[in-house]
Design a protein around this nucleic acid. Structure first.
Lengths: 242, 242
DNA sequence: CCTAAAACATGACTTTCGTCATGTTTTAAT
DNA sequence: ATTAAAACATGACGAAAGTCATGTTTTAGG
């Protein structure tokens, strides 16, 4: 729906980049000098909310890391329905999978959830690194295996659970991955509309609104979009039940 | 539900094993002598329909290849509902993902769909091979990336499509992966009950029965369990729409 | 601060799908 | 061949969730 304004700018990442990269599992196992070489192959790009980092179906040329902000990975149908596969946070890798194929296409569209900064490495440099560092390849295998587990778990949830259970599972997961403990609850630090949640749990916006109204009434959550708070994560876990 | 009778027998695979293994993408790139060494590290086990190859949650010690027959990978809930993640066919790898972790647990239960023969390699030998062969590691990355794409596609289908569309997509996929062209249609060569299909599309058996009755009436498919035939794959594709 | 757009909310109604009950057909084992 | 179990089939009914309409609140930009 949103046009790709692409008001993005590109530059070399400064030395200060290191702090984020050290948290990337793939790089943390490399030797100091290998790391230096890798970092020189990274370019940094900033995107705004309306930009798209790449679109589903486009050829996959780079391997990406989120430096700042959050990114969502989305699949959509011809008739405009959307399904959000995952929200990526700082330090998360993405597209190291598709990049492994010659001529592979992006399986989804990468869309910033606000202002973001993305580090990219070209496919060839990425391949080169994997061949030189068997340990790095094993890190990538672990990463992909984790992603696969997540996707399989989500499959099970979508196949077997009711909408309220799926939403509860989402809130529990987001809380665990990114929640900030505050007086009165666990706050989700990103802007997250009912529509966003609906796309993540395979339901309509109205259904999510109704369920969240119930959750609010039952003191499981409070707040909206910018300030969503999880009040009772234990009862949410019970509802999601796994 | 079914008890693990485990009437399985174990033996060394003969040289005749080679033909199946050559079709395994992971091995096809190895040098002749590397392959010989790998093959010596494989053990073959046969299982019957009632056996389980491994259970969800068990520690993952081996990496597996289907030699003969078909295997399904299943997740289940405490209350007995099941969700089939994938059907594996001869030449398919499984659990090369979980095996990559120390102490990782199986994400699902592996259940034979009849008499099957499975080749296994111990985690340590598998790791060793990956470290010695960067190209093999890249093959595994490609394999996992493919599995991830499949799981993400399935996610989208489960999140956005109706039961009849999900079933149509399943039939199209199975037809493409294993269908045998015969006079009058594309035959699916495995025994596949309505219950099996229900577990693969996230629906109940009754729903699948009703939808298949409609598909039969509309001449899209014919036959049952043992002899399921796809009569009009194009209309099924249109219905599944992607 | 003001205003338009986006997000949130709720009701009424419909469709889809699950559940339960019951009966028939097919399959597989003795 | 017989027979018990599994698979297939169909109807009736209700619960879950989608759709559409309408109105309120919140948010973001000028």
């Amino acid at each position: 729906m949103s046009k790709p304004l692409n008001t993005s700018s590109s530059k070399r990442p400064g030395l200060s980049t290191g702090n984020v990269l050290d948290r990337v599992p793939l790089f943390s196992i490399l030797s100091r000098q290998n790391r230096e070489r890798i970092f020189r192959n990274l370019s940094e790009t900033r995107y705004g909310k309306k930009d798209l980092i790449f679109r589903e179906g486009e050829p996959s040329e780079y391997f990406h890391i989120v430096k700042e902000g959050m990114v969502k990975c989305v699949k959509s149908t011809p008739d405009g329905k959307e399904c959000t596969l995952k929200m990526l946070m700082p330090g998360d890798l993405f597209c190291c999978d598709a990049a492994a194929f010659d001529g592979a296409r992006h399986p989804g569209t990468a869309q910033p959830m606000g202002n973001v900064s993305i580090l990219r490495m070209h496919k060839s440099a990425y391949f080169d690194m994997l061949k030189r560092n068997p340990d790095a390849a094993i890190e990538v295998i672990k990463h992909l295996a984790n992603r696969l587990h997540e996707a399989q778990e989500q499959n099970k949830i979508l196949a077997l659970d009711r909408a309220d259970q799926r939403l509860a599972a989402l809130l529990v997961d987001l809380g665990a991955r990114s929640g900030i403990q505050e007086r009165g609850g666990l706050r989700l630090p990103m802007r997250l509309t009912r529509q966003d949640m609906a796309n993540m749990v395979g339901a309509t916006t109205e259904t999510v609104i109704r369920i969240l109204s119930r959750f609010k009434r039952d003191h499981l959550v409070s707040g909206t979009a910018n300030r969503l708070m999880i009040l009772d994560i234990d009862r949410l876990k019970t509802l999601a039940s796994r």
